[in-house]
Amino acid sequence: MLTDADINAIWLSLRLGATTTLFTLLIGGPLAWWLSRGDTFFRRLIGAVVTMPLVLPPTVLGFYLLVTLGPLGPVGQAFRALGIPTLPFTFAGLVVASVLCSMPFVVQPLQNAFEALGERPLEAAATLGAGTLDAFLTVILPQTRPALLTATVMAFAHAIGEFGVVLMIGGNIPKVTRVLSMQIYVYVENGEYGQAHILAGGLMAFAVLTMMAIQLLNPKRKNKPLTGLTRW
């Protein structure tokens, strides 16, 4: 039912999803924290820039990334000067594009949660003698767990589903950048709808399951730690 090419594409998509999630959280987490701790024009500007991938058509974003990261663009030339191969048409290039596209899905929920958390729990923690790391692990993480979970799942899910940007940056190269969404595209262009349906159906089932997982893991109202705290 699944060909070797399909399995390669699925594996590549899963790897892309996992890598993207990791980097998006590592960058998006601190960024969301910084955005939530103050309200200046500069912060608003950065907040708006992070949201841009939601608005720009994927092929447009993909094209600008291709030009910027390519050997003639500013980033590409810097890479060249340092003797590093340029990013387009590599797996690393896919990850960079994918992290940018997934960023709003991580920053938005986390920023909201951090803002809702407010200063008081942290002040309380400091009063009780907790250091920064201690407060992060015992106050911030548990209190914003639902948002963190949402961010993680959304980053992963979006990286799996992305098509336009990764097609432009990746060049649809088998085993290197041909992810699941591109494999479906190849089948459709080929008129092999049967094989396309199998992969698309699997992707749909995956989407429903992940969204269900968020719903089930984030119980509504009951035990919602954030609301409980603001009341206190």
């Binding site: 291709l66 050997p71 387009p88 432009m168 060049g171």
Partner: peptide, 12 residues
């Protein structure tokens, strides 16, 4: 798309 990519030194 390929035209844009080839201009960016795609490995084709």
């Amino acid at each position: 798309n390929f035209y844009s990519q080839i201009k960016q030194e795609a490995p084709f």
